Amino acid sequence: MIDLLEGRFFKTFLAVIEEKSFNRASEKLGYVQSTVTNHIQLLERACGQKLFHRLSRGVKPTEAGLKLAKFAHQFVHLGLTLEEAMNESNQPKGTIYLSMHESFFVTRMSPLIQQFHLKFPNVKFRVETGYHHNVIDDVSQHVVDLGFLPRNPQRDDVNFYPMIEEELIFIASDELTRNVEANGLKVLNNEAVISYGNSCLYHTQANKVLEEAGIEVGNAIQYPSIEMIKNAVKCGIGFALIPKIAAKKEIDEGVFRSLPLSSGIFSTHGIIVNKDRNLNFPAQMFKSFVLDHYSFQTDPEKA
């Protein structure tokens, strides 16, 4: 089987998975579509398995295709690592693949990426965003080099490196906060809880705190980004649990306030790395750069 495999087949295979289309994959890779089709057919012949379901609007991987994806990512990563090792230049170059929650990218990671890129302009970044389980999957399946999570996933296949203790707060409009202060937490029974959805760790933490406070969580609204969540709170649509750093500007400006619901809600953000992944030189440098920046600060205001 291995004699029939070529690295370009794996690159084509991953491009089709990412683009969900042979045509879009060919545009991305600069091939004609027949070349992409030929690469996939040769790969299917080598594996002895059908790798994609052909749908009316694109394609999706079969069960065999999903299994192969993990090894394809490892194969491509190995090639990039080998290329880096053969490069005698002291100036690192290549692409670092990251996965994290959208709010962490906005509030914490984007400035660090900018600083690192200014220092090492030949290093590029590719960032995936998703929920807690999406980040874990990206790391465990070798899709990315580094994942960033708001707590230790306690898994045998990844290493967790703590970075910073992040404080979370409930935010609400000034009107709703005054109502709670005047009439008690029972007011929140009639208000919507805003979050990224049931898959979000912050949503789970919010429900736990609300349940302990005797607040019945009935109405929940899901938004895909931290900015949409904050704007919904500004409009008085409901209240939300978000990282304190993400709300600092609006609280300072009096746009919304922190609810007197609970104090001392923290999550320890850290980096996760697949135990079987040998990070290339740029990824190793960026991991050290991030950990050195935070040095596991317990006070988020020091970051």
Rank of each mutant, 00 (worst) to 15 (best):
N152Y: 06
I245G: 01
L279G: 04
V139D: 00
K119L: 05
L51A: 05
K93D: 01
L42W: 08
Q74D: 00
F22E: 07
N190Y: 10
G94V: 04
M86D: 13
N183K: 11
I136T: 01
Q222W: 06
A192I: 13
D292I: 02
R108G: 06
V106Q: 11
I245F: 00
F170K: 03
L118Y: 08
H142G: 00
H117S: 14
I40W: 08
N87A: 12
L149F: 11
V76Q: 02
L51R: 04
T107M: 04
D145K: 03
T177S: 11
I2Y: 10
R54E: 12
L118R: 06
F9L: 06
E175N: 13
S263R: 15
F148I: 13
S34C: 09
A25F: 12
K244W: 15
E167K: 08
G254V: 12
V217I: 15
F120S: 05
L118A: 11
S288P: 00
L168V: 03
H132S: 07
P282Q: 03
H117G: 07
R151A: 09
F256R: 02
R178I: 08
I2V: 14
E175T: 13
L43H: 01
I96C: 07
I171V: 15
K230M: 01
F105W: 11
K70T: 09
Y161D: 12
N179D: 15
G270M: 02
K275F: 07
G197S: 14
E301G: 01
F289V: 00
G30M: 03
L78H: 10
S195H: 14
L259K: 07
Y161S: 03
S262A: 09
V139T: 00
Q91T: 13
G218W: 13
V135P: 01
Q284V: 01
V143H: 03
Y161N: 09
I113K: 05
L185V: 14
T204E: 05
P243Q: 04
K248A: 14
A172K: 01
H73G: 11
H117F: 00
L176W: 05
V233A: 03
A240P: 00
K208S: 09
G7I: 15
H293P: 07
N280M: 10
A213H: 06
I272S: 02
S110D: 10
